[in-house]
Structure formats: structure tokens, C-alpha cells
Design a protein around this nucleic acid. Structure first.
Lengths: 363, 363
DNA sequence: GGAATAGGCCCACGTTCGTTT
DNA sequence: AAAACGAACGTGGGCCTATTC
């Protein structure tokens, strides 16, 4: 285990501060409760009472203590506090790639919700998606004595781990599926995929092709299922899947090129906006017009998606709300609620210019 | 100050665990060092020595302790450790909008670098960009007893705060300017803007218009300056600024529309890729071709930018590298280096299809 | 003069460090 | 040389005493 390699205080390494070092309240060290007590002329326990809002306090005393706190710039020591209360007030967050819009926005929602609840966040990233890396990340946050763990990695490996791991603290998985894991917050991916597919069907398309995301990501498989269910419920032919993407625009582009070598679909539902963008590009380069020749629907509604060429019809998920729900779920579990759960976030279809009725068939 | 509202342990509120509660090593509680010691038949100090790799240890003892640690699943208590060592091993990270690609990627780099150095990250988000919110966020991480603070908010307000604040711990500002703040890591924005502008000039454009970002963001003003310097150094006319954007595609679109009402430039340097995208959209809707009628350069190189219509010529910044440099800088400062600094990250021009020589002028 | 009310004292939390055996 | 002892980090909780009306 790597250790911090440096000492933040200018004291020579190995030297310990002796009690006389601090000289009873001079400005050299971080003041502690006792220093405040001295200045206010009370005991440190009274300072503690003031800070924690005990009701039995003479206003004059409280004011004196508050003034002393202010004067010294006192902040309580979270380590000492954690030690005695056995509560760290910290939640561990594990994320795979926070440079992506979805997870990053989820973290944003999580952060504001956690702060509102008085918790702080300790972060752990995943250098790669693997069971080992996940395990290491869990260990990393556990070493921070977190009171709970949130995993924003909607990957099969994370699901498996969540199911197998027996932690002393609750673990919430942020994913988009109604899976078998007890603690889950997510967006209703299946409904989102249905929305997208039905929209295209409603426009008059005979059927809809699907550009799937990586199969081991839970959102990808859920969207795949939703697409399939939407077609089945209307008794439509289920086209062969397009070449599976990896969420990136490049893979969407590649899948689009591959698609163009076969019979051309009139409508495509791409598993996310990035891949949809790559697909748009491939279609454009092939001289096909969107939506006249091919309609395209994405998923996510990136901030940029409304400015693609053409502006992309897509399914919006409210990631920030997702983060908030995950936190709400956690709070309930921490409060002791047995079978706590939160409803899935409902996705919304955003209709723009990349979808239209198919050109008159075989006319 | 909001407090965590719940108790993670299933113990009734208000009840304290008495020493007999834990029953000397049963599985009910998080084991402590003393439990390990009991199992291994040594004192708890010896366990500490094993964990901290003290040289004076009989191998047999070490093995026994290690076995006990394993058997009990012992993890040391960071609070107790922090209390006595006066080191939290935690760095506070303040970010304004981590759902954006830049800051999020920077955090990614920061996270991996900090973990490698044995530090963990404590996160604080900004509900809004303001001096007050910044101050609150700093307070929030300070309440975590962080050993240092990284501010990923390249805003004027953050710069001002960083200069005025006298913290007991170092504060590194991640921004893109060679400003007067002592502790800074950044990408060379001026050079990036120069790269973009010169590229357009080299293609034969008489001059280059600029779609600026919000003036109170340091990157925006640096890019503005870089653009201006590039034109000046070649004695080119400096066109009036386009309507200032707010980094969003929408604002780029709006600025584009406004531009089309005046004399049309042949080349535009947009302060980021999102605004460039909005501009592309506005140009497209006006029936103008890019790059034939207007050349456009962006800044950032989003993962999507290569798939815009047309693929966007832009200036790439390596955000992850930026995060790593910020961390490297911090480590040096924490190690006591007086005038520590790290070189700016060099941006790279990525030439794609949105730039070309101007159409023959006044032919 | 008995009940509130205000505030002090002791201890424990789980580590690490200097000293001693 | 190897390991135990004792103390200390700064806070919060239980308990108890000294005020106050």
C-alpha cells in the first residue's frame, strides 16, 4: 500500500510535537477544541456542546465560545470526531470513466445530494473494467472507512461483484436495469429503448435496426432488450443486429460502414448518441440523407446532440436525478429501511430532425 | 452544518458499544488492531510494526500477525491513524461542472496520479460559480482535513480567491494561463490559440474572426489573447469579436446567427468545440459550406469532434496529463519545495476537414 | 428547597511513537 | 534484537456537581 510521501507540516520528519510545542494557543498549529475553551474561559466539553447545538447552554456562554471559534479560526478535527462517533460521514464513489457525460453527470447529482445530507464523497477510479480493478477500488474506499459505497459502473462485472460481495456497509449499484441486485438506482433503459423504437415504428417504418453497445454493459443489454420487446409487441421482423459498438463515435462509424454493405435499413436505433453520431457520419459520407433515406435515433441526449447534422432525435436520461435517487436510496438504507428501493428514472424521447417517415416503399 | 442523519450500524440510536459488546474478536464488529494482536498472540504495537513494515521483526511473528490480519479481514482505522500521525492522506478537489469533458478528464488524471502517490480524493462541487460558493467549497474540503486543495475552476473568481486566501495547506489552481498565482498547472492556452489562428492564416485567410468564450473564464481570455497576438504578429487586421458565448453549443449557434447578419468572415476560431459545433449548425442552416465558404477551428478536441459535419479541425488539450501535472506539482510542494512549478501542457493542432484555403477572393 | 439548568470531569475511540524490558 | 509498555492525538458521551429561580 502506497503511503503519502511527504509531510504537510514544516516539522522535520520523525519529530513529534510535544505538548509544550504549541505554547497554549499561539498561532503555530491548527487550533483544537481546548484552545477555543481556553480563550472562551470554559471547558472543551462546553465548546463541543456549542458546536453540536446542545440545548442547555447559556446564550452568553454560547456567544463567548462562538467568538473564540471565530477568533482562532477553529475547525473541528474530523479524524478525532470519526474515531469517537464511529461515523466517517463519507461515502465512497467508484466510477469507471468519469470523463464520459453520463457517469460524470451522475456524480454531479450524487455530490449535491450527498452534501445536502451532510456526507462527503471519497472518489475511486477504475484503471480498467475488470473484477480485479473493481475489487481494488472497493478496497480503496473501504480503507477510507466509508459508510456506504456507490458504484457507477453499469457493467456486468460490477453486477456480479455486487451480488457476491458481502460488505459491512451498503453498496448501491447505479445501473439501468431491473436486475436481481437488491440495491439499485437507474434509468428505465428498457422503456427508453421502447420509446425510441416505437417512435420510429409510429413514423411508418416497417422495422428498426439496432446498433448495440457493448454487450457486457448493462445499459447496452437493456436497450437491446427494450428494442426487441418493442418490435415483438408489434409483431415486426427483428433485423439482425448491426456490428456491436463500444459506445464510441468511431465504433458507430465503423458499424455504419458495415451496415452499408448489406441491405439498407430505413431506421436505426443506436444505443447511444456518440455511436449515432458516428453512424450519421458514415451515412453522410455514403451520400445518404438523414432522415430522408435513413432515420436515426440515439440515446442519452448529450448537450451537443441537438446540434449534430441533423439534430439528433434521442432519448434523454436525467443523470443528475439518477445521482440524487442513488443517494436517496442510500440514505434510506442507512436509516435502516429493510427493503429500500427507488423508482427508476423515466427517460424522455426528444424528437429532433434525424427521424421522419420512410420514403415511399417500392413505389 | 448538516450532519449525516443516520447510523450505519444496526445498533439502536444512542446506545454505545460497551467493551464487552464486541466479545473479544467475534465477527460482529470491525476488528481492530488489538483483535489481531490477540489472535496472533502479540501486542497491538507489534501488529502496527508489521503493518508499517518495521525492520526489527522476527519472520515467524510477522507471519503469525499477517495470518491473523487475513483471518479477521482486518483493515486499519484511518481516523485513528490520521489522529495520531496528523496526516489525512486526503486531497480536496473542487470542481465547477464535472459533467463537462475537460474538468472531468482532468479529475481522471488527478485521481490516478493521487492514488499512485497514496492519496485519496475528497470531492466538492460548486452549485454555482461565485466567490461565496468557492469559499464554501474550500471550507467543505478543509473540514475533511485535507492536506492540499486542487481547484479545477479556471474562473476569474477562483483566481482571485486563490490569491487572497491564506490557507494552512497548499492550493493548486488548474487553469490555462501563466497568471500571477504561484501554484498553477495548465495547458498553454495562448499557444493553442496561436496554433489555431496561424493554421488559418497559413491556409491563406486574410484574417480570422474569433468566437470568444465567457470573458471571466481564464481559458477564454487566454485564447482571446492568443488569437489577438497571432494576428498582431503578422500585422493582420483584428476583426471585431463575435458575440461572446458561454461555452455551450447553443451560444455558438446564436453567435453564428448574429455573425451572419454582418460581413461574413472566411475563417473563425471558436473558443471551444461545443461553440464551434453550434456555429457549424448555424452556417449549415444558412446554406454556407464549411470549409468552402467558411473555415472553422475549435478548441478541446472532444471525442466527438472528429465526427462532426464536417469533422472539426481543433486544438487538442491533454486533460489527463493536466491532472497528472497538477498532482505532481502538489507533491513537490508538499515535499517542501519552495518555488515548485510544472511546465504548461502543450496543446496540439488536430487538422480535419473544417478548414481549407479561402475561396478565391473578389474574383 | 426541590427541580431544572449549566457546565465540568473522566474516559474511550484505535492508532503510532519514544522508551523500556 | 525483538517485542511490550505507556502515552498521546482531539473529540463526544455518560455521569455528576454547582449554580439558579
Amino acid at each position: 500500500m502506497a503511503e503519502p510521501k511527504v509531510d504537510p507540516e514544516a516539522r522535520p520528519a520523525g519529530t513529534r510535537a510535544t505538548p509544550t510545542d504549541r505554547g497554549g494557543g499561539d498561532g503555530r498549529h491548527r487550533p483544537r477544541m481546548a484552545d477555543v475553551a481556553t480563550v472562551a474561559g470554559v471547558s472543551h466539553q462546553t465548546v463541543s456542546r456549542v458546536i453540536n447545538g446542545s440545548p442547555n447552554l447559556r446564550p452568553a456562554t454560547r456567544d463567548r465560545v462562538l467568538a473564540a471559534i471565530n477568533e482562532l479560526g477553529y475547525r473541528r478535527n474530523p479524524a478525532a470526531r470519526t474515531l469517537v462517533t464511529r461515523r466517517s460521514g463519507t461515502i465512497g464513489v467508484i466510477t469507471a470513466d468519469m470523463s464520459h457525460f453520463g457517469p460524470a453527470s451522475t456524480m454531479l447529482g450524487l455530490e449535491s445530494a450527498s452534501r445536502a445530507a451532510g456526507y462527503s464523497l471519497s472518489l475511486a477510479g477504475l484503471p480498467e473494467i475488470s473484477s480485479t480493478a473493481l475489487r481494488a477500488a472497493v478496497g480503496q474506499v473501504l480503507d477510507q472507512a466509508v459508510e456506504a459505497v456507490v458504484v457507477i459502473v453499469a457493467h456486468q462485472a460490477a453486477l456480479t461483484l455486487a451480488q457476491s460481495l458481502r460488505l459491512a456497509v451498503p453498496l448501491v449499484l447505479v445501473e439501468g436495469d431491473l436486475s436481481a441486485t437488491p440495491l439499485t438506482a437507474g434509468v428505465d433503459q428498457i422503456e427508453g429503448a421502447r420509446l425510441a423504437t416505437s417512435h420510429l415504428l409510429d413514423l411508418g417504418h416497417e422495422t428498426v435496426s439496432h446498433l448495440p453497445g457493448p454487450a457486457d454493459w448493462l445499459e447496452a443489454s437493456a436497450r437491446h432488450r427494450g428494442w426487441q420487446m418493442a418490435l415483438e409487441s408489434r409483431n415486426r421482423h427483428i433485423p439482425e443486429l448491426m456490428v456491436q459498438g463500444d459506445w464510441s463515435s468511431l465504433s458507430g462509424y465503423g458499424s455504419g460502414l458495415a451496415m452499408l454493405r448489406g441491405p439498407r435499413p430505413t431506421a436505426v436505433f443506436a444505443a447511444n448518441d456518440q455511436m449515432a453520431l458516428g453512424l450519421l457520419r458514415a451515412l453522410h459520407e455514403a451520400g445518404l440523407r438523414v432522415p430522408e433515406d435513413v432515420s436515426v435515433v440515439g440515446f442519452d441526449d448529450l448537450p451537443e446532440s441537438g446540434y449534430f447534422s441533423p439534430p439528433l432525435t434521442t432519448v434523454r436520461q436525467d443523470f443528475q436525478e439518477l445521482g440524487k435517487r442513488a443517494m436517496a436510496l442510500l440514505l434510506r438504507v442507512l436509516a435502516g429501511e429493510q427493503d429500500a428501493s427507488v423508482p427508476l428514472v423515466e427517460p424522455v424521447l426528444i424528437i429532433r430532425a434525424s427521424t421522419a417517415a420512410p420514403a415511399a416503399t417500392a413505389s
